[in-house]
């Protein structure tokens, strides 16, 4: 039996989501953003809600998310995606609205917007990509940068005396009455990808049930700015990021 005996329509178990466009992604090889985009597209496709979903893209490496997932998109100013999502969801209560944000976007410049959107319990989905760095601007310190971690603006490593502590914003968000589902996932291997997809699906389902805000953090790698090859970056993430940002559901109700 050769491979041509296997490649037949009836044996097809996987294909690229129709919700993904054919545009080649601009992400660095090994970057987590692309995997999360794929999962979002799959969930939107599986739930058959392409015509009812409105995405808000951030300022950060994912600014161009709108090129890759074929839905209606709004491109927000740095940190403000939750405000756009709030109005969009309130004006279209029957649509699915999600904000896609990086750690600088969500946990630094946009801290007020995310806290208050979550506290109001807006029926939106938040996808939070925590790569502990400012990817787009060339690897400066993010609020989530680990102590000791070297970045362009912490060349000798992050020091608490100088830079404060890494912010566990997801734990903070879980404290807010308005959130119904707060979880931390990753996408560095097939098992974690499957779990992350389940979490994203659940978040979208929650928003239809008007249960409040669903918040999905993805602990992600930025191999380019961490200055490591992709495989090493994933290993570094498992060894250094996961102990401080432990995976799993923080809140589910």
């Amino acid at each position: 039996m050769d491979s041509n005996d296997i490649i037949k329509p009836e044996n097809l178990v996987y294909s690229k989501s129709k919700v993904l466009t054919d545009t080649v992604m601009h992400y660095c090889p090994g970057c987590s953003h692309g995997v999360v985009h794929k999962l979002l597209a799959e969930v939107i496709g599986d739930m058959d809600i392409q015509d009812k979903t409105i995405g808000i893209s951030p300022v950060g490496c994912a600014v161009f998310a709108y090129k890759y997932i074929d839905i209606d998109w709004q491109q927000a100013a740095h940190g403000r995606a939750p405000a756009l999502a709030t109005a969009t969801k309130r004006l279209y209560p029957d649509k699915y609205v999600f904000a896609y944000q990086g750690d600088g976007d969500l946990a630094s410049i946009g801290t007020a917007e995310i806290i208050h959107a979550c506290n109001r319990g807006e029926n939106i989905v938040v996808i939070f990509i925590n790569n502990a760095i400012y990817g787009m601007t060339g690897g400066q310190m993010a609020p989530t940068t680990l102590l000791g971690m070297k970045t362009a603006t912490t060349p000798y490593g992050r020091k608490s005396e100088l830079n404060g502590y890494p912010l566990k914003i997801t734990e903070l968000i879980a404290q807010l009455e308005g959130t119904c589902y707060v979880t931390r996932q990753s996408v560095q291997n097939p098992g974690s990808v499957r779990k992350a997809k389940k979490a994203i699906r659940k978040a979208f389902e929650n928003s239809a049930q008007k249960k409040g805000t669903s918040f999905v953090e993805i602990v992600a790698s930025c191999n380019s700015n961490w200055k490591m090859p992709p495989v090493k970056a994933n290993k570094w993430m498992e060894e250094n990021m996961f102990p401080f940002y432990p995976l799993g559901d923080i809140k589910d109700r």
């Binding site: 409105i54 808000i56 709004q74 927000a76 100013a77 403000r80 405000a83 756009l84 999502a85 709030t86 109005a87 969009t88 309130r90 004006l91 279209y92 007020a112 917007e113 208050h116």
Partner: peptide, 23 residues
């Protein structure tokens, strides 16, 4: 819809989102 935002920064960005919707 009438909503008291957490700041003017937020109000204007709510407008941005709402205006994107054709509202």
């Amino acid at each position: 819809v009438v909503l008291q935002a957490e700041s003017e920064t937020s109000s204007i960005n709510m407008l941005y989102g709402g205006a994107c919707c054709g509202k």
